[in-house]
């Protein structure tokens, strides 16, 4: 009787020890996988920022004369790392589901042009500022990463800029940028939702199109 209880207890202890080991192994595995994920995403953001800053500094005089050249730089070096289709889905929300394939295509293109312009303008202004990368906080889900950076500015506290990325196939893609906690996706969702309520998706696309045309002619 005593022996049976003892062995039962021992088996119980053994089992929980085994369970503990398994759990630990799983946790470690998950942790290292997450670290690897984060490293890939961080490396992408860091390398891209460094590359673009270098180009902006090298071609500074040229860009001063023709600011329009910046769009080419953004198109070539930054855009390939953004997933505009996913951004458009997030921005339109339920309106994406209701949209036709044609509307979706048009929206992605117009929204992309808008973001290129906004991004390019911001980059020209802050190209000479120092960017620091904050240590990763390991709370992201598998295949997701948030890369936190800070951009120094003259006469004020640094501006936090966070990039949200996800693993698409084997490449990290940016799907949102948060500047001082203001998410591009959430903000555009708010603005676009009220436009759509007013005049429908077609009207929003038309408005964006006009805005882009106007900017292209300037």
């Amino acid at each position: 009787m005593t022996a049976a209880v003892l062995s039962g207890a021992r088996i119980g202890a053994f089992r929980s020890a085994l369970g503990g080991c398994l759990l630990l192994a799983l946790a470690l595995g998950a942790a290292s996988a997450r670290a690897a994920d984060d490293d890939g995403a961080r490396a992408l953001v860091r390398d891209t920022s460094a590359e673009v800053q270098k180009i902006l500094q090298q071609r500074h005089a040229e860009l001063e004369r023709k600011p329009g050249l910046i769009y080419g730089v953004v198109e070539e070096y930054i855009l390939p790392h953004f997933d505009f289709e996913r951004m458009s889905q997030l921005v339109l929300g339920k309106n994406w589901r209701a949209a036709t394939a044609e509307e979706r295509g048009q929206f992605v293109e117009e929204f992309r042009l808008l973001l290129v312009r906004t991004y390019a303008t911001a980059m020209l202004k802050y190209s000479d500022q120092k960017i620091s990368f904050l240590p990763a906080r390991g709370k992201a889900r598998e295949g997701e990463a948030v890369v936190q950076t800070e951009v120094e500015q003259a006469g004020g506290p640094p501006i936090p800029i966070d990039y949200s990325l996800y693993l698409k196939g084997d490449a990290w893609k940016v799907y949102d940028v948060k500047i001082d906690s203001v998410s591009l996706v959430v903000n555009y969702r708010g603005t676009f939702a009220s436009e759509i309520r007013g005049g429908g998706l077609a009207a929003l696309i038309q408005k964006l199109h006009e805005r882009n045309q106007q900017a292209a002619n300037e």
């Binding site: 929300g93 339920k94 996706v185 959430v186 708010g190 939702a193």
Partner: peptide
Amino acid sequence: DPYDDEFGEDDGEI
């Protein structure tokens, strides 16, 4: 999480 509900009935009001 603002991204969880990709196609939700979110009217964008913050």
